[in-house]
């Protein structure tokens, strides 16, 4: 039985449809990623799963509890790290975690142990008694992730968990998320802008755009759906090489153009020696070879018609995260 199951769930704000009849299922122990451009509806979708927003129509269950009719059951089963900061800055790291543990009925005698455990994990144990307002953005993010884990949730929702973090911390958090799944069988549902994050961390990815799921598959399945690698050969006679290679089953498509030959094929790196041999036999001189394997960026571009530029986003996003923290919540 899937631990998250949404069927035709829709959220409308007045006449605007932010999430449009989304259906998906996540199995226990899976790390599931929701990938989409700004405004795609990722946060709105998560908000409905965590009972913060009511669906306009459709149904969703988390850990067997219906989000509309049994929100309390859902809340007990989940941990969530919101996209926007949700810490009390006047309290210390420890006090924030202690309050959270109490709200989630962590037994009194276990609170301190667990708090120290998660603080160590995010390397904030030395700052436990400092007020959150003295923390950097990355430290706050780590503290929030730690907080989401204290009560050992069955499902952990992470809305852009590593936004604005440095690559080292990001890797650290990925490791921890993997460990959670391995050791505690926690199901993780995350949204992200980082292709690398989606690719290395997630078992399955759904691409969402304009509130609709466009594609859902494993990262390699998504990349394969684009139809193989691209091999670019610079050579003396592209046409000749092209006709020489005709009949090779592994080559899906070939296009000669001024001084270059573009091939589409599966497992490109394994085919290069064979292609070089054929070229030599045909007397074609190859001056350079480059192989491009499809990335999630390509997948994303292919299905949404847009690219996600990680560099641009990280600075723009961390700024937005800051601005949002100050903005009121509706």
């Amino acid at each position: 039985m899937p631990i998250i199951s949404a069927s035709n769930i829709t959220k409308k704000f007045n006449s605007f449809t932010a999430v449009n009849s989304v259906s998906l299922q996540v199995e226990k122990g899976e790390i599931f990623g929701l990938l989409g451009p700004n405004g795609a509806g990722k946060t709105t979708f998560i908000s409905m799963l965590v009972t913060m927003k009511r669906p306009s129509s459709g149904r969703a269950e988390v850990n067997g509890f219906d989000v509309s009719s049994d929100p309390r059951g859902v809340r007990k089963s989940i941990g969530i790290v919101f996209q926007d900061q949700a810490l009390d800055e006047e309290l210390t790291a420890y006090e924030n975690l202690d309050l959270h543990a109490a709200l989630y009925s962590v037994p009194r005698n276990e609170r301190e142990i667990r708090i120290m455990e998660v603080l160590k994990m995010v390397e904030l144990d030395s700052r436990r008694d400092d007020q959150v307002k003295t923390f950097s953005g990355g430290m706050r993010r780590r503290l929030e992730i730690a907080r989401g884990l204290i009560h050992y949730p069955k499902v952990l929702f992470l809305d852009e968990p590593t936004l604005g973090l440095d690559p080292q911390t990001r890797k650290h958090i990925w490791e921890y998320i993997n460990k959670l799944r391995r050791e505690h069988n926690v199901t993780v549902f995350l949204t992200t802008h980082y292709m690398e994050e989606a690719d290395t961390l997630c078992d399955r990815i759904a691409i969402i755009d304009h509130g609709k799921i466009i594609m859902m598959d494993t990262p390699s399945g998504l990349k394969d759906s684009l139809g193989g690698d691209t091999l670019l050969l610079e050579c003396s006679s592209p046409r000749k090489l092209c006709s020489t290679l005709k009949g090779q089953e592994c080559i899906i498509d070939s296009k000669p153009h001024n001084g270059k030959l573009t091939l589409r094929l599966d497992n490109g790196e394994k085919k290069i020696p064979m292609i070089m041999q054929k070229a030599r036999d045909a007397g074609v001189a190859v001056s350079s070879v480059s192989l491009h394997k499809p990335t999630l960026d390509d997948v994303f571009l292919h299905y949404t018609g847009r690219t996600i530029r990680e560099e641009n986003i990280s600075s723009a996003e961390s700024f937005r995260m800051h601005a949002r923290a100050r903005r009121r919540m509706r």
Binding site: R75, F82, Q85, A86, L87, H100, Y104, R326, M329
Partner: peptide, 18 residues
């Protein structure tokens, strides 16, 4: 409550099983 809304902390309490 307004400050909690603005700084986002309110969500933390609203989503708790309380």
């Amino acid at each position: 409550v307004i400050i909690d809304k603005q700084f986002g902390f309110l969500k933390e309490t609203l989503v708790a099983p309380v």
